[in-house]
Design a protein around this nucleic acid. Sequence first.
DNA 1: GCGCTCCTGTAGTGACTGCTCCATGAGAGA
DNA 2: TCTCTCATGGAGCAGTCACTACAGGAGCGC
Lengths: 211, 211
Amino acid sequence: MPHRQQRANGVVSRDAILDAAAKIAGERGYDGTSIKLVSDLSGLPASSIYWHFANKDDLLAAVIDRSFKAWSTALDQAEPAPADATNEERMVHGLRQECVRVMTHPDFLRLGLMLLLERRPVEAAARRRFHDSRMEIHNRVTVGYARMFPALTPPQVRQLVRLTFASVDGLFIAAISEPELDLTAEFEVLGLAIVSAARSLTARNLAAAPS
Amino acid sequence: MPHRQQRANGVVSRDAILDAAAKIAGERGYDGTSIKLVSDLSGLPASSIYWHFANKDDLLAAVIDRSFKAWSTALDQAEPAPADATNEERMVHGLRQECVRVMTHPDFLRLGLMLLLERRPVEAAARRRFHDSRMEIHNRVTVGYARMFPALTPPQVRQLVRLTFASVDGLFIAAISEPELDLTAEFEVLGLAIVSAARSLTARNLAAAPS
DNA sequence: GCGCTCCTGTAGTGACTGCTCCATGAGAGA
DNA sequence: TCTCTCATGGAGCAGTCACTACAGGAGCGC
């Protein structure tokens, strides 16, 4: 089958629709995102929206996809910590970058968390998309933590990773509800807390099973 | 003005409406909570809902209020840590109780976080209600932390409190999206992390300004 | 210019939205 | 039993919901 040709006009419209949908969904949640609102904000008629996307659920899933990609390429462009950095420096370095990343591309987390909280009976495709994307990052971070804290057991590593993700989520929500909040300081303390906890767990492990 | 008499029937219906609204709002968010759905689930007609509550916003605010009260009386009934407990034991003790409390009365946090994430243009009364209720607890915890870690500066105490709240929020969301997750272990690690962080900050303070 | 597909505009569908009106039933105090 | 208020039932308001049918303009390869 030949490559389906596409007008320049088309991708611009598609992006405009996604922009509008991201903004509105971030403000009002899944049910609050009406096609009429997206149509008004993007300046395109409903028929265009339904030409680009199968239905509302598909539209929201596409918003998740795009925002995840934006966030993900930002992650790939993160500058690595210096080779001689300590674990604590590495952690703080990584979290500081994540702080900037999350506040620069807030749509991914915002929308995703909203979909997680809304447990509608019929599972939305958008929600599953978020969950899968996130698992990918979760695994990456788990590998990093395991290398960073070799004395921890795999369950302990998983717990630390979950705690880190949960804290980032919570701090993100706090930043949204109180815009004047300075997140960088909070992320600094979070880094300290994680590294300290890892240190305590390591000490506990060594005390329990001395070599 | 005489006390407005009330039939037993009335408060039962009111509670049934609140139950239904809490369930649906927890599943579908603010916009997803339609009067029709609440009416069907509670078995009462729309006119009854509007007899008990001024409008949809007022209904949701009442849901927040009631769930906050349930959570709050659970907080008042929390058993205190033993007098000779260490800071770490106190922290773990408190967080363990909070873990049970939050999972026993999940409506308050679930609904509240959803309202925080949904930043609809017109501020909903329900959202403000949640914010105010939460500030109350926030202040209580701040006083407790200040007593527990006297060497920390007030901004450091506030940061730790915010981090604690954020982590609890994040872990709660994680528990919702993955029901098989064992929260108690996560809360244990969180307690360790907070205490460890406080210890590191204290050491840092003492090093910077030795007496 | 031609033809072909991509994309947009108009006008609608039936179902549902928050909310109101008002008649009627049910209970409690007299 | 009589009243009087509390509470419910049902019908219906204008407006919006997700979504569709279809005609026609716009840009492409030729």
